[in-house]
Design a protein around this nucleic acid. Structure first.
Length: 415
DNA sequence: CCTCCACAGGAAGCGCAGGAGT
DNA sequence: ACTCCTGCGCTTCCTGTGGAGG
């Protein structure tokens, strides 16, 4: 004893019940609760579609739409958990496989995940897609089951890879003797349908379900349910749930967001040693979540993207509030030179700028300046301090952030 | 109304790493 | 050892375009 006083203190504090939490896992976003408030209708609908499978008939394909945090994934997972459970009891051969297409974002990897669900090992690269598909098909057939494939964030897959995999999957039943496959596609993007081949759409969209965003009252109910499981009694100030609900409803009714707020607020309160979660903790949590999101994104950026970001920053510092692609590329080129790197092409840099826009680090807008061309206006959409902060620790980058590119004077003189 | 700028962004394809089969 | 496969990051080449200025 005595060596690690600080840690011992932290541990003791935690063990003695300094924790506000009863079970913090309940607030994690992969948790599937026993009760899904305000989704009874959707649960019933999905249930009705799949109930006949317990009797041996094959299920329809479903398309599920709705923005993030509207309960799509939770409802589907919930219903299928219950279904497979029940299937076990009555001896119906049903198996479900969940794949998140944003994480597993190529045809090949999706297929290898499906194979893994059937206990078939597939190398993570090396085989032709057709070969993997064939292995999957024959293995599925030999299992003699109904295989329910859940493709979450399916829009991400179709946007980048097209719908060939979906086409093959929707037609796989034609080549199965003993098994059936059924597909549930979950999409965040309501316009997702437009990307699909009509044949795929008609097959995949046999049934469609749209999840509306939650309003503040509904979010409050969800939070109430979870908070009762997550926290000890009496640690939330009265308006806490309403505040989280209101903040999340103001975005677009994102329950995940609301739960994150609550969890982080709890963690902040706990660390502070406060016995109760106050409004201030929630406000702080909101800032913290945003801050963490950005720093994490910044730190994981590839080097050239950092240079692009740095270029926009330097332009801004020199007084160029909204730079155009050409300016950014010029500064970027100079920075690459300083680093001793071969610069990427303007085409590539243009794509990097778009990627940074998607992550939310940059703000871009395509504008036409008439005689002076059609281009993209680029602005930083985060605080400057965050960029400087994330470059700390790498002296090459730290030097760049204080560098004054020679081309700046030319750019400035043009406007 | 036409022109023409400064790009946007699609398409194709290249070189590489990592793996399978032979 | 060799060939063939894929995904990935990138380049090259390309066509398309909104609107100020003539």
């Amino acid at each position: 004893m005595g060596r690690n006083d600080v840690l011992d203190e932290v541990f003791e504090h935690f063990l003695k019940g300094g924790s506000l939490f009863q079970d913090r896992n309940v607030l994690r976003n992969d948790y599937v609760p026993d009760i899904l408030p305000h989704r009874g209708e959707q649960i019933r609908y999905v249930g009705e579609i799949y109930a006949p499978t317990l009797g041996g008939s094959h299920g329809s394909n479903i398309l599920v739409y709705g923005k993030t945090g509207t309960g799509k994934t939770a409802v589907i997972k919930y219903v299928l958990n219950r279904l497979t459970h029940r299937a076990c009891e009555v001896g119906a051969p049903i198996k479900a496989c969940y794949v998140n297409c944003r994480l597993v974002n190529t045809e090949y990897r999706v297929l290898s995940n499906l194979c893994a669900a059937l206990n078939v090992k597939v190398p993570f690269t090396g085989l032709a897609v057709g070969e993997v598909f064939e292995r999957f098909r024959s293995c599925l057939d030999s299992h003699k089951i109904l295989f329910i494939i859940i493709l979450d964030e399916i829009d991400a897959l179709v946007e980048t890879r097209g719908d060939t995999l979906l086409y093959k999957l929707t037609r796989i039943n034609e080549n199965l003797q003993h098994s059936r496959a059924s597909i549930i596609g979950i999409s965040n993007d309501l316009r997702f349908k437009e990307l699909l081949d009509p044949r795929v759409l008609s097959s995949l969209g046999e049934e469609e379900i749209v999840f509306r965003p939650y309003n503040a009252t509904e979010l409050r109910d969800i939070l109430l349910n979870r908070a009762q499981l997550a926290f000890r009694d009496g640690v939330l100030f009265d308006g806490a749930l309403s505040l989280c609900a209101a903040l999340a409803a103001a975005e677009h009714g994102d329950a995940r967001r609301a739960l994150d707020l609550l969890r982080v607020a709890g963690e902040l309160g706990e660390r502070e040693g406060s016995g109760i979660i106050m409004e201030g903790h929630i406000r702080l949590a909101e800032k913290r979540i945003e801050h963490d999101r950005i720093s994490e994104a910044l730190e994981n950026l590839p080097l050239h993207s950092k240079l692009v970001l740095c270029s926009v920053y330097l332009l801004r510092k020199a007084g160029v509030s909204s730079a155009i692609t050409g300016d950014v590329f010029e500064v970027y080129g100079e920075l690459s030179g300083q680093m001793g790197l071969a610069p990427l092409t303007q085409r590539r840099v243009s794509s990097l700028i778009n990627e940074l826009d998607v992550i939310g680090l940059l703000n871009t807008r395509v504008v036409s300046m008439g005689r002076y061309g059609r281009t993209k206006k680029v602005r930083l959409s985060i605080a400057h301090g965050l960029i400087r902060g994330s470059f700390k620790g790498d002296d090459r980058l730290e030097r760049l952030i204080n560098y004054t590119p020679g081309c700046l004077s030319v750019i400035l003189s043009k406007r």
